[in-house]
């Protein structure tokens, strides 16, 4: 139970970071933290007490293994996260190129 609670804390830290921070890079870090909290939670969902890793070996039979599906899905989600993060960083650098600042209170050409 504690693990799930810590997951929630991590997620909240990420969301707090997104909402409160003014620096573009810190916002990106906040998104990454929140994303990893979700991934961690997904991996925990597949956990089974006393389970072992779901790797098939020739020598022994496995009886109590953890659910492998969430791990595969988390891997996919991490790949997507990588693409999104690369995109975010690229845009942030270009914004820095144009505006000369990472402060979102100074990046305000759009309004209304």
């Amino acid at each position: 139970m504690l693990l799930y609670f810590l997951c929630l804390v991590l997620f909240s830290i990420g969301i707090f970071c997104i909402l409160r921070k003014r620096n573009l890079i810190k916002i990106i870090i906040g998104i990454i933290i929140a994303e990893y909290a979700v991934h961690l939670f997904f991996a925990l969902v597949g956990y089974r007490a006393e389970g072992r890793s779901p790797i098939f070996t020739p020598s022994e039979n496995i009886f109590n293994m953890v659910d492998p599906l969430p791990q595969a899905l988390v891997l996919t989600a991490i790949v997507i996260g990588l693409a999104v993060t690369a995109m975010m960083v690229a845009i942030a650098i270009r914004i820095y190129d144009k505006y000369g600042t990472f402060d979102i209170t100074k990046i305000r050409k759009l309004h209304g």
Binding site: V79, I93, R94
Partner: peptide
Amino acid sequence: SIFVILVMLKFTVDGKKGN
């Protein structure tokens, strides 16, 4: 190429596909 593009600072915005 993502790494090179981010390093070189002279990038064209490119599609990073989640595959």
